[in-house]
Design a protein around this nucleic acid. Structure first.
Lengths: 220, 220
DNA sequence: GTCTATAATATGATAGAC
DNA sequence: GTCTATCATATTATAGAC
């Protein structure tokens, strides 16, 4: 009943897809915590609840698994930026971008850490994707921000560094979660920290860009 | 001529210290790029320019090396925050804190990545230090910020999240350097990117906290 | 498709000569 | 102190039975 491997890439049964999902779920858990080299197939198999040879039947190598995960995560990871709308209102666009990124950090911390591990270790597997699709998307959105600034809708600022700062501040709550919890202590480290972070970041970025929901006082 | 190991921790010759430095320098290079589990003693020995047994004569285990590095880095890593002065002017204190952190990201990216790797992978070796000395220092400085806000010198904001956002935005340029370079492209990714980042972050934080060097217009 | 067994290699650490 | 040789184990991956 085994399909030849070539065919499996074309059409897979539901069971096969479910197994592959199960494996990738486990792989995400392990890779996100230990990085590529630190993760072992043994661990992944154990988390996935199957034997190592069985796992390797679905993904021939550790690298195949990692590549599949990285590709998928990189794609969905950029969705919030794709939604960034040139026609929208700068205040609500920037605010909801921050909110979506923070929600992803809260709801998908493993994906964030997988990505962070990869970048941190020199991005050996995704350099092309960073320089290609990622750069293209950021270039496009940077142009939107620049146009807003030119039209006086937000303060003049470097749009690339604005995007970097939104990425870093929001992903911090996933990637450095252990440190955030340690510093905040048990009392403040509950789920409410995401609401606190959202409030703070909204204030920081909206004021930092001279955006105000009430029309600003004329001062010049 | 070999001193017993017990004595070496008490007093070391210059040659021994130099060797240990040489090893830690190599270890920093390798650990910062691959994390603890991903790094190999072989690699470290090669970078240090000595044989593996020779290296292991100075540091009996891989973990000893890692611990020595982490302890040292964590200590110097907090120096900029220690300099944060309650008696100083909020504008110049926050501005120079950002600048110092950004300079560290530029001049000591490996130290930043070593730390990031450790936190990202759950901080198995330094949880105590995070919950102890680090938390204590942050608590102290958060109180300073809170006092400034109470006195109306800066906008009211959550001081912990302010500190987190300064950490994350500045360290981003070390930890995610590969991504930053990929997005900026060859033209903008030169050394000048740190100046651009400094300008942007200064604007973001000083405006974001309603701090202005010129006295603000009365508007209420 | 899944298993047990195992090959092939990588890796942390040590033994013992010099 | 430094070396060569090597042990013990961990790890990726495969072979072959079922």
């Amino acid at each position: 009943m085994a399909l030849p491997r070539a065919a499996r890439t074309q059409r897979r049964t539901r069971i096969q897809e479910a197994k592959e999902e199960q494996i990738l779920e486990a792989a995400l858990e392990v890779f996100s915590l230990h990085g590529f080299r630190g993760a072992t197939v043994d661990q992944i198999a154990e988390v996935a609840g199957m034997s190592k040879p069985n796992l390797l039947y679905y993904f021939r190598t550790k690298e195949t698994m990692h590549r599949a995960l990285i590709t998928r995560v990189l794609d969905t990871w950029l969705d919030p930026l794709r939604e960034f709308d040139a026609e929208g209102n700068p205040v609500s666009e920037i605010r909801s971008y921050i909110r979506r990124k923070l929600e992803m950090a809260r709801d998908f911390p493993r994906e964030s850490r997988l990505f962070a591990n990869e970048i941190l270790q020199g991005a050996p597997n995704i350099e092309d994707e960073l320089k290609g699709p990622l750069k293209a998307l950021v270039d496009e959105k940077a142009e939107v921000i620049r146009a807003w600034a030119k039209a006086g809708k937000i303060a003049k600022c470097d749009p690339y560094h604005l995007i970097f700062s939104i990425w870093s501040t929001t992903q911090h709550y996933a990637d450095f979660d252990v440190q955030v919890r340690a510093v905040l202590g048990q009392d403040q480290a509950g789920a409410g920290r995401f609401e606190d972070a959202a409030r703070f970041l909204e204030q920081l970025f909206l004021n930092g860009l001279h955006i105000s929901e009430q029309p600003a006082q004329a001062s010049s």
